[in-house]
Amino acid sequence: METPNKIKSKSDLKSQIRDWQAEGQKVVFTNGCFDILHLGHIDYLEKARAAGDKLVVGLNSDESVCKLKGPKRPINKEYARSRMLAAFSFVDGVTVFGEDTPKELIEFLLPDILIKGSDYTVETIVGADIVLKHGGEVKTINLVDGFSTTNIIEKIKEK
C-alpha cells in the first residue's frame, strides 16, 4: 500500500479494521505524538506490530501535541509526522486525533490489541477498559533506554 493511502480518516480506518478483523487478522492499536522519529519509536512500533497482524497508529494532532508538550511543539507538523509513520512497512494505517487522549478513538475503532510503552501499566493506559470489555488484550512494550524526542531537542539546544 502506498504511503498516502495508509493515512485515513477515522471512519475509513474503522472500515479497514473491520475488513481485517473479518479476515481473522488481529489489529494492534497504539498512539502518540511521534514528533521527531528516532530509534526508540522504530523499535516500539516494530514490537507493537509483532503483537498482531496489522498495526494502526493514532497520531496526536498538532493542536493536541501543543497542549501536551508546550507551545514550541510539535517540531514536525501532523502531515509530515503522518507521512513518516505511514512510510514504515510495519505500520498499516494512521489517523490523526485532536482530543487530549485517544479514548474516543479507541472506542470508535475497537482494536483487538492495545499497546503502550512500559512507562505505563495496564491500569493507567487510556482505553484499556474499553478494549478489555470487548474481549481484546492490553500490553506494554519495553522502551529503548536513552531515546526520547525531548532528549533529542535538549541535545540540539546544547550545540
Rank of each mutant, 00 (worst) to 15 (best):
N142Q: 13
V126F: 07
V57Q: 01
I130V: 15
L143I: 10
Q25S: 12
T140N: 03
I106S: 03
S9A: 10
G135V: 06
P74F: 11
V96L: 02
F88M: 13
S148K: 06
V138M: 11
L143N: 04
A86L: 07
T101S: 10
K159Q: 15
L109T: 00
A50E: 13
I130L: 13
S82I: 03
A48V: 01
M84A: 13
E107G: 13
V94P: 12
E78M: 13
L132D: 10
I17Q: 04
A80S: 14
F108V: 00
G136K: 06
K67D: 14
G40W: 03
G127S: 05
K133E: 15
R18E: 15
K155T: 12
K67A: 14
I113H: 04
I152G: 06
K54C: 03
K69R: 10
V28I: 09
A51K: 14
G146E: 08
G146Q: 07
A48M: 05
K69D: 11
E46F: 07
R83P: 13
G24A: 09
L59M: 03
V94D: 04
D119N: 06
N142Y: 12
K69N: 08
T140K: 03
N60R: 00
V96D: 06
S15G: 13
D119C: 02
K155S: 12
T30I: 02
N151C: 06
W20N: 04
G70H: 05
P102Q: 00
N142E: 15
T150I: 04
G117M: 07
I141H: 05
F88D: 09
